[in-house]
Simulated scan of single mutants.
Amino acid sequence: MKIYGLKNCDTCRKAIKALPEAEFVDVRADGISPEVLAQAYEVLGEALVNTRSTTWRGMDEATRAMPVLDLLAQEPTVMKRPLIERDGEFLLGWTPKVQAALGL
């Protein structure tokens, strides 16, 4: 299991604490592979982009209009987080629904 997020994100910290066996990938420091992004986008679509984030609000319209995968490759911090990958399945966020799906 892998958790993709930011090390200073409170929500990501909660997920890491609840899932100590998971590998954490800091998308700002380590990046996220194009393959993982493409697979997550196939499953989650536009929900992968956090349009409520400070990063998103600071972007100009041309940047916001970029294809999602290009945008996330250029600005991984605009990804909604945490993105959890487990056995080829992708879960997004740290909602009660996600926690239930993980058996927590």
Score class of each variant (00 low, 15 high):
V36M: 11
P76E: 02
E75I: 15
V27R: 09
K17F: 09
F24Q: 01
E89W: 01
T95P: 01
A38I: 09
Q99R: 15
Q39Y: 04
E35M: 11
D30T: 13
L72I: 11
E42V: 06
A101S: 14
A38L: 08
A62Q: 05
T54R: 14
Q74K: 15
I84A: 02
W94R: 12
G31V: 05
P20A: 00
M79Q: 09
A65C: 12
M66F: 06
L44K: 04
Q39E: 14
E42G: 13
L69P: 08
F90C: 02
G58V: 07
S53R: 08
G31D: 13
D87M: 03
L48K: 09
G45E: 01
K17C: 04
R28K: 13
R86E: 11
D30S: 14
K14N: 10
E21C: 00
M79N: 04
Q39N: 02
L102Y: 11
A62Y: 04
Y4M: 07
K7H: 07
L72N: 02
I84V: 07
M1W: 14
W56C: 02
Q74R: 15
L72Y: 10
D30N: 14
T77R: 13
C9D: 04
L37T: 11
R28P: 01
R86F: 03
R57F: 09
T51P: 08
A18K: 13
R13Q: 11
L83R: 02
I16C: 09
L19I: 08
T11D: 06
C9V: 07
L71G: 03
L104T: 06
E46G: 00
Y41W: 13
G103Y: 14
D87Q: 12
K2G: 06
T77P: 00
N50L: 04
R81M: 00
T54N: 12
G103R: 14
M1G: 05
C12T: 15
T63D: 04
V78P: 01
T63H: 03
E75R: 12
V68F: 10
G31S: 06
G5K: 04
T11Y: 10
A101M: 12
L19T: 11
E85H: 13
V27M: 08
E89V: 11
L69F: 15
G5A: 02
A47T: 04
L71A: 03
S53N: 07
V36G: 02
I16L: 07
P67L: 01
